[in-house]
Design a binder for these strands. Structure first.
Length: 859
RNA sequence: GCCCGAGUGGCGGAACUGGUAUACGCGCACGACUUAAAAUCGUGUCUCGUAAGGGAUGUGGGUUCGAUUCCCACCUCGGGCACCA
């Protein structure tokens, strides 16, 4: 027998598989379908390290098992090549991004091709291909031309909104919209000018232009979404990519009204088989708070200030109000504020604060609005109104009521000597009675600690009672608020999908029609950032002359729907045919990093929900099951990086040990979802395993296996099948190692049994198994053979080993028949020679027998 | 500060639903083969103890006949959110 020559074997079979197209997805409507998807990569310039393919190998193992299990498997790969990473790379290397992407894709494909992944490459997509982004632009326009009807709980065409406006105005509309909407009636909709109509509709569109504080990154010359920024070690806000400083800046921007879907993005999680960890992150990010809107009437002036709270049960101790410095009330009531000039000074200070000072929790600053008093709706007391920058304008109503329970409010009150009051204990169940107690509190120089809760009520019950009570006086209403903000959908950069809109000289926006798509990105020489806050496209004369939008779409646009395109990747008439969409449905198994929890995974769900609302797709959620891949760290435990000079290149591993060894090792090194350090020493174990498998060919014969090893075969098939299903690849391999060690002890191995073993190893080590399989006389690929089934009868042991404990400590071990009666076993154990010494002269209190596992004698 | 997750040999890790803790692999030690080395194969490898036996799954408690697994408190590490009312 020849030695295991991985180079020869791997080259041979990779060529063969390519020629025979065994991994090609069928278009037929075979009813067992399985969509196994990897998060597609952005092709970076530096090439792959050994950690990148780990996820692809895992999904490949899964896809291969499913293929052998008779499924029509869709397992594609593509490129997410628009966006900042690709463009930054291009700028640094002074290559046009288009060219850079082409080159990087080549490197990527060369590196991936030698690993033996079973992709159907004919379905490859690339987000920068105009044939692809034609449909990204189309989806954008669909979103742009839609609004969200809260009553129906779904998105609808903007035309339907216009006809409602024509008939009844917007008085009775319950829609997700920008919050500065003024009410108009049916009578005046037609009286609005074209521009006015546009402005009103813009407040309802799901993709809209708005004015908002955004994350501006001067060095990158663009705005960034909340999930694209992070804090560095010093606590400063920086860009996730590159670590450049980011500042808050008010700008006109395109947004996506993802907040309209906030509730569905939370409730939809219940349908998904994702790790609870990712679900938790998304829930946190969306940040749902159930509470109440409270009205504080303004004394003498009239009107009221609205406040959002989740703790209405603390309203009786609310002794002042705090507004954010940007709150509209302040400017509207300039003349009534006695110390307005002082306020202006404060505002100036706030504006000049650095990010670090602004988020300093230990140093609250504020100013009282003199001459303004509001009424606490629960107590009827006049309370003062303050302004402080710790109150955030964009959350809730930009105003809070303050009470001593809240640490921030408490700090503020202590610093400025504002009266406080703590925990009123009502004397009876009537809420009105509590007001009496409140008076007492005030008299004690501001603070009175009078602990206790509402009689017989949990704080939750108290909340709903108080809300009801104040609601009956029209002073409160139940409300839900979310932390999540609408997503900024524009980048002032060159390398992205153009937004398919035109502006005429009067500022009227028109959308491109499908027949005019794609709106291709102009091929320019200079794509450097402008530094003015404008996109490089603003410098392209022909572009500007046509009135095209100069911002481009963010990186997440193309990746928010690519999983649909794979279903029908070359369709030129639709983003994908109805037939293909209905057949493939959701992604059954999605594999990728957990770092996309608040970005890609949320945006995809948002777009998917939208497309579902519009009836284009039949599934509510894009990714039914998801498995997250842990990072492969360098041997020193740090991230693999050029900077640390600790990068392990998969090419070297493939060349030295073979692709199969790389695959087996990456699956064996530890749990799939766990971050693990690479070990240059340990990989040899996986190679030795495959060497053993190769050598076992010498022992194959047609003689029957003995019963013992036959059992191990069948148990291993069961274990490996289950483990692959659960992505427990490390234990699947360890059980196969056990089997191989057993086989080595035997003189002969039955050919049929050995072939079953090859089949369950095939997803992990496709090349070597194919080689041996065909050495054994098979003419067709092992990878299109049928997944072996274990024989239930053959995994049952007649004789089993069980442990005997005395008082919970193992003292002996016996072999018994599995069906032995409890009576018999009890007799056996108390006479066992190893046990006798421990129970002599002692009273046996109990004997516990757990069938097939253990006997415990209690003395 | 709040919300998750995890702590098991020298190392990566295994252990079903509470039932023989340390499977599998690496490393290490010894042995076989070899002139020798590599490769390969075999034996051993949590710890204290000559042994009998005792002790170990981050720490301390609890529940149980029995706890890595369940409960409580704490410590350490990782992740997410964060002046979000």
């Amino acid at each position: 027998m020849k030695n295991y020559d991985h180079k020869k074997i791997e080259k041979k079979w990779q060529k063969d598989w390519k020629e025979t197209e065994i991994y090609k997805t069928l278009n037929s409507s075979k009813n067992k379908k399985m969509y196994v998807l990897d998060m597609f990569p952005y092709p970076s310039g530096v090439g792959l390290h050994v950690g990148h393919p780990r996820g692809y190998i895992g999904s490949d193992v899964y896809a291969r098992m499913k293929r052998m299990g008779g499924y029509n498997v869709l397992h594609p790969m593509g490129y997410d090549a628009f966006g900042l990473p690709a463009e930054q790379y291009a700028l640094q290397h002074k290559i046009h991004p288009k060219k850079a992407v082409e080159e990087n894709v080549k490197t990527f494909e060369r590196q991936l091709s030698i690993i033996g992944l079973s992709y159907d490459w004919s379905r490859k997509v690339n987000t920068t291909d105009p044939k692809y982004y034609k449909w990204t632009q189309w989806i954008f326009l669909e979103i742009y031309n839609s609004w969200y009807d809260n009553k129906k709980g779904k998105a609808r065409k903007i035309d339907e909104l216009v006809s409602i406006f024509e008939k009844t105005g917007n008085k009775n509309i319950n829609a997700s919209c920008s919050n500065d909407i003024s009410v108009f009636t049916a009578k005046n909709w037609k009286d609005f000018s074209k521009k006015e109509k546009q402005d009103i509709l813009m407040k309802y569109r799901l993709a809209y232009e708005g004015y908002s504080e955004v994350n501006w990154c001067p060095q990158m010359g663009t705005v960034l979404a909340n999930d694209e920024i992070t804090t560095d070690v010093k606590g400063d806000i920086v860009s996730e990519r590159g670590g450049y400083p980011v500042e808050k800046k008010s700008m006109r921007q395109w947004f996506m009204r993802i907040t309209a879907y906030a509730d569905r993005l939370i409730s939809g999680l219940d349908r998904l088989e994702w790790s609870s960890h990712i679900k938790e992150i998304q829930k946190n990010w969306i940040g749902k708070s159930e509470g109440a809107l409270l009205k504080f009437p303004v004394k003498n002036i009239g009107g009221e200030i609205e406040v959002f709270t989740t703790r209405i049960d603390t309203i009786f101790s609310g002794t002042f109000l705090i507004l954010s410095p940007e709150h509209q009330f302040i400017n509207k009531n300039k003349i009534n504020i006695e110390n307005f000039s002082e306020f202006e000074k404060y505002l100036e200070i706030v504006k000049n604060k650095t990010e670090e000072e602004r988020i300093d929790k230990n140093n609250k600053t504020g100013i009282e609005l003199k001459g303004i008093k509001v009424i606490n709706p629960a107590t009827g007391f006049e309370i003062p109104v303050w302004v402080s920058d710790f109150v955030i304008a964009s959350y809730g109503t930009g105003a809070v009521f303050a009470d001593a329970h809240d640490k921030r409010d408490f700090d503020m009150a202590k610093k400025y000597n504002i009266p406080l009051c703590v925990s009123i204990k009502p004397q009876d169940n009537s809420l009105f009675e509590k007001i009496k107690n409140f008076e007492e509190c005030f008299e004690e120089e501001g603070i009175l600690f009078n602990s206790g809760t509402f009689d017989g009520l949990t704080s939750k019950e108290a909340r709903s009672k108080i809300t009801e009570w104040l609601a009956s006086k029209k002073l409160a209403s139940k409300t839900i608020k979310y932390k999540m903000r609408d997503a900024v959908f524009a980048r002032q950069r060159y390398w992205g999908e153009p937004i398919p809109l035109k502006h005429d000289k009067d500022g009227i926006i028109s959308d491109l029609k499908l027949k005019n798509l794609p709106l291709e990105l102009p091929n320019v020489k200079s794509y450097e950032i402008m530094g003015t806050g404008e996109s490089p496209l603003a410098g392209v004369k022909s572009w500007v002359k046509e009135g095209y939008e100069t911002n481009t779409m963010p990186g997440w646009a193309g990746s928010s729907w690519y999983f649909i395109r794979y279903m029908d990747p070359t369709n030129n008439k639709e983003f994908a045919s109805k037939k293909a969409i209905d057949y493939w449905n959701q992604v059954d198994m999605y594999v990728g990093g957990a770092e996309h929890a608040t970005g890609h995974l949320l945006y995809s769900r948002f777009w998917n929900n939208f497309l579902y609302d519009m009836g284009y797709i039949s599934f509510k959620e894009p990714f039914k099951k998801m498995k997250n891949i842990g990072m492969v760290l360098a041997t020193d435990g740090r991230k693999m990086s050029k900077r640390w000079n600790n990068v392990v290149n998969p090419d070297d591993i493939v060349s030295n040990y073979g692709a199969d060894t790389l695959r087996v090792y990456e699956m064996f090194m530890g749990p799939f979802d766990q971050s693990l350090p690479w070990s240059t020493e340990s990989i040899i174990g996986s190679r030795r395993f495959l060497d053993k498998v190769f050598r076992l060919q010498n022992k194959i014969s047609n003689k029957n296996s003995n019963i013992e090893i036959e059992k191990v075969f069948h148990k291993t098939i069961k274990k490996v099948s289950e483990d692959i299903e659960n992505f427990s690849f490390n234990t699947a391999i360890s059980s196969m190692m056990v089997l191989v060690n057993e086989m080595e002890k035997n003189e002969n191995i039955n050919k049929k049994d050995f072939k079953m073993f090859l089949q369950i190893l095939a997803p992990f080590a496709p090349h070597i198994t194919e080689e041996i399989w065909q050495n054994l006389g098979e003419k067709r690929s092992i990878h299109t053979s049928s997944w072996p089934k274990y024989d239930k009868k053959k995994i049952i042991d007649d004789m089993i080993k069980i442990a005997i404990q005395v008082n919970g400590k193992v003292r002996s071990e016996i072999d018994i028949n599995k069906d032995i009666s409890e009576e018999k076993i009890k007799k056996i154990v108390i006479n066992d020679k190893n046990v006798v010494a421990w129970i002599e002269n002692k009273l046996i209190k109990r004997i516990i027998y757990v069938k097939g596992r253990i006997v415990n004698i209690v003395v």
